[in-house]
């Protein structure tokens, strides 16, 4: 449904961040987009959602198609109306508004239908109890549920989640990921899941891309990537003997190895 064809992105006319990224996201599937900090994951999402413009960024090469239509020069408002929602990283809320007002705003581009609230509460029952609460005071996990629920209110065909697990306890992340999986199956939604936490992401994803320095350096079915030695070492933080190792330690050596042969 979504197709990125060799796109390049430049910020402020000089800073090139994406150097030819191609990927796709089919209906009803979860695609994980992995990579370390600064790899260009968020930039890729912004290119799709049209939010690049507010950051002085531009798609200077390649093209983006959604349902057969080119979208790489549309305004974010219109891209949302085509059915693409980017859930921004960092659990961005309208902090001074209540939970329910946040949700209603999520549906407002479609005319804000209150009945859709129930659908969100089915996935995240906790939000129903909190619906009159000012959202800025929710816990991190509740806030994450709220931003995903708000995305769902738009009834998107493609939902892009930017690091939903950041700073949350593993159990909570698992709970949220399960709901994400359910959502993609029940609503037939395509999901792009941006994560640094590769292990959890690969568990629910169908397919995955790994980015480094503005390029896709590896892609494949999630199950296959989870078995890949490089991935294990870089992104799951496991060496062959099973001890944790930081990505940084192995990065230079490994990257050389990959590019040289």
């Amino acid at each position: 449904m979504l197709l990125l064809n060799n796109i390049e992105v430049i910020y402020s006319d000089v800073i090139q961040v994406l150097r030819g990224v191609s990927m796709q996201a089919p209906e009803g599937k979860i695609v994980a987009l992995l990579g370390a900090n600064g790899a260009g994951k968020t930039t890729t999402l912004r290119a799709i959602s049209g939010l690049l413009r507010a950051q002085e960024g531009k798609v200077t090469r390649g093209n983006i198609e959604f349902g057969g239509q080119r979208i790489d020069n549309l305004d974010p408002e219109n891209i949302v109306r085509l059915g693409i929602i980017q859930v921004l990283e960092g659990r961005r809320l309208f902090r001074h508004l209540t939970v329910e007002e946040n949700l209603l705003l999520g549906g407002i581009a479609r005319g804000g239908i209150a009945r859709d609230l129930e659908q969100v509460y089915e996935y995240f029952p906790r939000l129903k109890d909190l619906r009159r609460r000012v959202s800025g005071y929710l816990s991190g996990g509740e806030q994450q549920m709220l931003v995903i629920g708000r995305g769902l209110m738009a009834h998107p065909k493609l939902m892009m989640l930017d690091e939903p697990s950041l700073g949350l306890a593993p159990l909570l992340v698992q709970e949220i990921f399960e709901e994400i999986k359910k959502m993609s199956e029940r609503e037939g939604m395509a999901i792009i899941l941006v994560e640094q936490n590769a292990r959890l992401a690969l568990k629910i994803a169908d397919y995955a891309y790994v980015m480094e320095n503005g390029r896709v350096v590896l892609d494949g079915p999630a199950a296959q990537l989870a078995e890949n030695e490089d991935i294990k070492e870089f992104y799951l933080g496991l060496t062959q003997v099973g001890e944790r190792k930081s990505y940084r330690d192995v990065k230079h050596y490994k990257r050389r190895k990959r590019w040289l042969g």
């Binding site: 959602s49 939010l51 507010a54 974010p76 408002e77 949302v80 109306r81 929602i85 980017q86 859930v87 921004l88 961005r92 809320l93 309208f94 902090r95 001074h96 508004l97 705003l105 999520g106 407002i108 581009a109 708000r150 995305g151 738009a154």
Partner: peptide
């Protein structure tokens, strides 16, 4: 409250 967030939800 947040111009970028507002744009992101359309």
């Amino acid at each position: 409250e947040d111009h970028e967030l507002a744009q992101s939800i359309g």
